[in-house]
Amino acid sequence: MTEPAPRTATSRAADTDRVQVAQLLTDAAAEGLLELDDYERRLAQAYSATTYAELDRLSADLPGIANTRRGACQPAPKTTLLAFMSGFERRGRWNVPRKLTMFSFWGSGVIDLRYADFTSPDVEIKAYSIMGGQTILLPPEVNLSVDGTSVMGSFEEETSGAGTPGAPVVTVKGFSLWGGVNVRRKKRRPNRHVQRD
Rank of each mutant, 00 (worst) to 15 (best):
V123Q: 08
V170Q: 08
Q45V: 14
G87I: 03
V146L: 04
D17C: 10
R196I: 08
S104T: 06
R7A: 13
L43H: 02
R185N: 06
T10Y: 01
T164N: 14
A162Q: 14
P139K: 00
V142R: 03
M152F: 10
G179H: 00
R57F: 05
D56Y: 06
A53P: 08
R69D: 02
V142W: 01
Q195W: 13
G71R: 04
E141K: 00
V21D: 03
L36I: 15
D147P: 00
P77H: 02
R98F: 10
S160A: 15
V146S: 03
A60S: 09
N182Q: 11
S104N: 13
G180S: 15
T135S: 12
Y47P: 07
L24R: 03
T79P: 09
G180W: 02
T101M: 09
A60R: 11
Y47F: 00
S11V: 03
G92K: 01
V194Y: 03
T50K: 02
Y128N: 08
V169S: 11
E54K: 06
A76I: 08
T80Q: 11
L100P: 10
G153I: 03
I125L: 13
Y128L: 13
P63L: 00
A49N: 01
A76P: 02
D112T: 02
K126F: 11
L62D: 03
I65C: 06
R184Y: 05
R185Q: 11
P140A: 10
I136F: 06
T26L: 05
L113P: 00
L62P: 01
D197R: 13
A167H: 03
S48T: 15
R41T: 00
E35F: 02
G92H: 09
Y47I: 05
E35G: 07
M85P: 02
P97S: 10
I125P: 02
H193C: 12
T16I: 09
F118C: 00
L82Y: 13
P165M: 08
R188Y: 13
A116V: 12
K78F: 11
F118P: 06
V172A: 03
D56I: 12
A29V: 10
A49Q: 06
A60M: 08
D15P: 04
A28F: 05
S145N: 14
D112S: 03
D147F: 14
V123S: 10
N182I: 01
E158G: 09
E156V: 12
V110L: 10
Y52P: 04
A14E: 13
Y52Q: 06
R12E: 12
Q45D: 15
L144M: 09
T68G: 11
S150G: 07
E141R: 05
L24D: 00
A162R: 14
A116C: 07
T149A: 13
Q23R: 02
G153M: 04
T159Y: 09
F155K: 01
A76M: 08
M152I: 15
Y39V: 10
N95L: 12
A167F: 03
L58K: 07
P165W: 13
R196H: 05
A22F: 01
W178S: 15
H193S: 15
T16Q: 11
V110S: 07
F84K: 10
N182Y: 01
D112C: 02
W178A: 13
A83R: 08
D15H: 14
G64F: 09
S104C: 14
F84Y: 14
A29F: 08
V181D: 05
V181I: 08
V183T: 10
L33V: 14
T119Q: 04
P140M: 10
I125T: 04
T8M: 11
G87N: 04
G174W: 04
R18T: 01
W178I: 07
Q195C: 13
